[in-house]
Design a protein around this nucleic acid. Structure first.
Length: 823
RNA sequence: GCCGGAGUGGGGGAACGGCAGACCCGGGGGACUUAAAAUCCCCUGCUCGCAAGGGCGUGCGGGUUCGAAUCCCGCCUCCGGCACCA
């Protein structure tokens, strides 16, 4: 027997699988399909442990389902556009495409060394024209269906770099590159109309039974649907109305003032030419600056100023003052509120600070006093001070008052969302160009589909100005209008990389299609993804954008299903020393190092064994050692018998000794446990522990004094390897062949357990007195209840505790325990 | 502040309301060895006890139950998400 040389074993089998096209998959109507997908990585340079964990989990799921007889699609690709490539270009004078290609090549070899069962023929790379061509094509579908539009939006602007920054690039209100304080600026930007799908994105969550509740809640909160009313307040002295959104129209009689966001368009009209105009404008400028300051601060002080204008409360007909306040946001609702200080804490704080009127209109049991109250009452109650609505419960008043206002043309039911439209414009080079040209004659013109792709030019200059090199790429910018042939300029913004990752899972179904992003029938065969696996950090954005795309495509008839991911598994982070592994913390463990020292099988077994997938994983070098020891133990065990088990007779379970039956039961228990753990719960850690227990039992049997039953041993070792195969694919294939099997273990069927083998003749029953374990009894499984009770009561240890007391009752849990309750 | 999740031995982690701590690591002991490593076997929550055995133990305080790590109520701590959302 030679020792476990994982290098030789892993190389050998990786080559064997590749040469024999093991993981190359086609549609096959004769088998049930299973689409197993892990989130594709950004090619940052090398794999990190989070990737190893993610892909190890996915590979177990894929291999298990293959053994279960499914036709398994298990692809991999690259989310290859993104900012780091541009930074590398500037810092190291290497072209983003070159840098990215290089990283992909290296990371691909890393993935291959992990022994993952990908169909590499289906690899997709989002930065290549044969992929982004279809990203652009999908943009055009959005555009033609009114789902892509352009509008001015406030963005983070760095005056020194002359460019827009993504939120992530703004650190403490300063540009992350040059440290200049960031401004807000209005720029024309492209958007996808995701808000049109807000309700469907929300409602469909109920259908997603296979998603973690946590993720669904996060998405629901992000969408932030709230029901209420839009109410129009006539503006005194102007022929117009101020619209507000409120979830509490029942409190309108308590609206004693209005507050506008500083950016609200009405502000200008109200203050123009008034004596206070200058003061107010400087206040607004101050708020605009402060607004950017710390949005994250706990409770920023509420600041405001009276505009001098008034509105008419449509319920009370009173004139109420219109204020500007920093606590009202232009980005939500209408950018204006009716302030009901008695029933909203923020309004109350504001009213107290500026001495505004507080009127109680909802009265719960106690009695609130508008003069003295310090805490707003936001609960339900009966209406007071509300004219004809007095006495009505607030829940009913919501509807009644909204209808009342509606009758006057001053209100209506309205649903509001926190969700904003998706801003997809990036003033970046390394992204998919937005296929739009601006013609001097025709205006905004979409590039016709047959002219795609709009190639990203390669010969551009990278300067540390922060400005996209596309802007100065004259050959790219200056073009002909596809409609009139006249002079035109190309859009120089590229698309957010989340656009690329919103449909890649569909391209895997038909990765080389040159006339369409994918053939519908192929996508229809594979979709939806049966199991999607990735980091929880994508719980909101990526997963919501992908759902949105899928819905749009299903509405356009490009696909049939409208939810892309049937089941979702969000894996936890990889920690070391209790904190997330990161370069800046200096606590990185390099996967290459582990694979070089211990091999891919060990790395896989360790990350799967150390923690359940959804939880965080604490890295442990000793733990890796343990996983390695375990595989060595399996190696020695199988090799010890490999030569002798070549031709054994069939296992006859009816002729086993007691000890042998116990071993056979352990085998079958392991099959049951591993199957359930993998299939139902993804508890790979406990699955592996069962395999370890089986290994331990086999060692004890081997080391025992008796003659070994070769047929039993052969069967047990086979099952052991089959169970371990999805976790440690190389060593199991090697050992499988050493057991004399000529066909790879990965082509075998997943083992079934034998129900009969699980049966026992005797069981140990726990005997409790008042819920505390006092003794145990070994009894036949079919023991009569009365007899069990009698025997339990007769036990001397039980008698000690029962003596002199009265037996109140005896609880009997069949097969488990007897609890004698005494007083 | 709001919404999630988690607190179990020295560490990672197991436990359909029914033997708390499977399995792995660490620690201790034994076997093998001239010796060490590797390997194989045994022990390993705390505490009292020579032992048999007892008591205490799942963040804290209550409760439900014959029986609670698990269910309910009230707290504390940590992690994640959202954050003046009208």
């Amino acid at each position: 027997m030679n020792h476990y040389d994982f290098r030789v074993v892993e190389e050998k089998w990786q080559r064997y699988w590749e040469e024999h096209g093991f993981y190359q998959i086609e549609e096959d109507a004769s088998k049930p399909k299973y689409y197993c997908l892990e989130m594709f990585p950004y090619p940052s340079g090398r794999l990190h442990m989070g990737h190893v964990r993610n892909y190890a989990i996915g590979d177990v799921v894929a291999r298990y389902h293959t053994m279960r007889g499914y036709n398994v699609l298990h692809p991999m690709g690259w989310d290859a556009f993104g900012l780091p490539a541009e930074n590398a270009a500037i810092q190291r004078n290497i072209h983003p495409s070159e840098w990215t290609r290089h990283n992909i090549e290296y990371m691909r070899t890393q993935l291959k060394r992990m022994g993952l069962s990908y169909d590499w023929r289906r690899e997709v790379t989002s930065c290549l024209p044969d992929y982004y061509r279809w990203t652009q094509w999908l943009f055009l579908q959005m555009y033609h269906n009114g789902l892509a539009y352009k509008k001015a939006a406030a963005v983070n602007w760095c005056p020194s770099c002359n460019t827009v920054l993504a939120n992530e690039q703004v650190v403490n209100d300063a540009c992350e590159r040059c440290g200049t304080v960031v401004e807000r600026r209005e720029l024309e930007q492209w958007f996808f109309r995701i808000t049109k799908y807000a309700d469907r994105l929300l409602d469909n969550l109920d259908k997603l039974d296979g998603w973690p509740e946590k993720v669904k809640i996060m998405q629901a909160n992000w969408i932030g649907r709230s029901e209420g009313a839009e109410i129009l307040f006539p503006v005194k002295g102007f022929d117009e109305h101020l619209a507000v959104f409120t979830t509490r129209p029942d409190t309108i009689f308590g609206a004693t003032y209005m507050v506008l966001a500083p950016e609200h368009p009405l502000v200008d009209k109200l203050i123009s030419g008034t004596p206070n105009e200058g003061a107010i404008r400087s206040f607004i400028a101050q708020v605009a600056a402060q607004d950017e300051m710390d949005r994250t601060a706990e409770h920023t002080e509420k600041l405001g100023m009276f505009t001098g204008g008034y509105c008419i409360n449509p319920a009370t007909k009173e004139e109420i003052p219109v204020w500007i306040g920093n606590y009202v946001l232009m980005g939500y609702g209408t950018g204006a509120i009716m302030a009901v200080p008695a029933h909203d804490q923020r309004d109350l704080d504001f009213a107290r600070k500026y001495g505004l009127k507080v009127r109680v209109v909802i009265q719960p049991d106690g009695d609130l006093d508008g003069e003295t109250m310090v805490e707003a009452y936001t609960g339900p109650g009966r209406l007071v001070n509300s004219g004809q609505f007095d006495g009505l419960p607030s829940e009913e008043a919501i509807e009644a008052i909204t209808k009342f206002l509606e009758g006057q043309g001053l209100g209506r039911f309205q649903v509001n969302y926190r969700l904003r439209d998706w801003l997809i414009s990036r003033q970046r080079y390394w992204g998919a160009p937005i296929p739009i040209v601006y013609c001097e004659q025709c205006g905004t013109v979409p590039v016709p589909e047959e002219m795609l792709p709009v190639y990203l030019p390669m010969d551009v200059a990278f300067k540390p100005t922060g400005q996209s090199p596309l802007v100065e790429a004259d050959e790219f910018v200056h073009t002909e209008c596809p409609r009139c042939g006249g002079k035109a300029k190309r859009e120089t913004d590229t698309m957010d990389t989340f656009v690329c990752s919103s449909w890649y899972f569909l391209r895997y179904a038909d990765p080389h299609n040159e006339s369409l992003p994918f053939a519908k029938e192929k996508v229809d065969y594979w979709m939806p993804v049966d199991q999607y696996i990735g980091g929880v950090e994508h719980a909101i954005l990526h997963l919501m954008y992908a759902r949105f795309f899928q819905m749009v495509m299903s509405d356009l008839g490009l696909v049939t299903v409208d939810e892309p991911f049937q089941n979702l598994l969000t894996q936890g982070m990889v920690l070391k020393g209790g904190i997330k592994m990161s370069k800046s913390k200096g606590n990185i463990v390099d996967p290459d190092h582990i694979i070089n020292e211990y091999g891919a099988d060990t790395a896989r077994v360790f990350v799967l064994f150390a923690s359940p997938p959804e939880k965080e994983l604490e890295w442990s070098d000793e733990g890796v050692e343990g996983a390695y020891r375990f595989l060595n133990r399996v190696w020695r065990l199988v090799n010890a018998y490999a030569d002798q088990l070549g031709e054994t007779e069939e296992l006859d379970v009816n002729r086993l000794t007691k000890q042998e039956r116990d071993l056979w039961r352990t085998v079958n228990l392991a099959i049951k446990k591993v199957t359930e753990d993998v299939e139902e719960r993804f508890n790979f850690n406990t699955a592996i522990s069962s395999i370890m227990e089986l290994t331990n039992a086999l060692y004890l049997y081997k080391e025992g004094s008796g003659e070994v039953n070769r047929a039993l041993l052969a069967a047990a070792l086979e099952k052991l390897l089959l169970l371990l195969a999805p976790f440690a694919p190389h060593i199991t294939d090697e050992l499988w062949s050493r057991l004399g099997r000529t066909e790879s273990i990965h082509l075998q069927k997943w083992p079934d357990y034998d129900e009969a083998a699980l049966q026992v003749e005797e069981i140990t029953v726990v005997i409790q007195v008042n819920g505390r374990v006092r003794d145990r009894l070994v009894v036949p499984v079919d023991v009569a209840e009365d007899e069990l009770k009698e025997r339990a009561l007769a036990l001397p240890r039980v008698q000690e505790f029962v003596d002199g007391k009265q037996v109140v009752k005896v609880i009997l849990v069949p097969g488990k325990l007897v609890n004698i309750v005494v007083k």
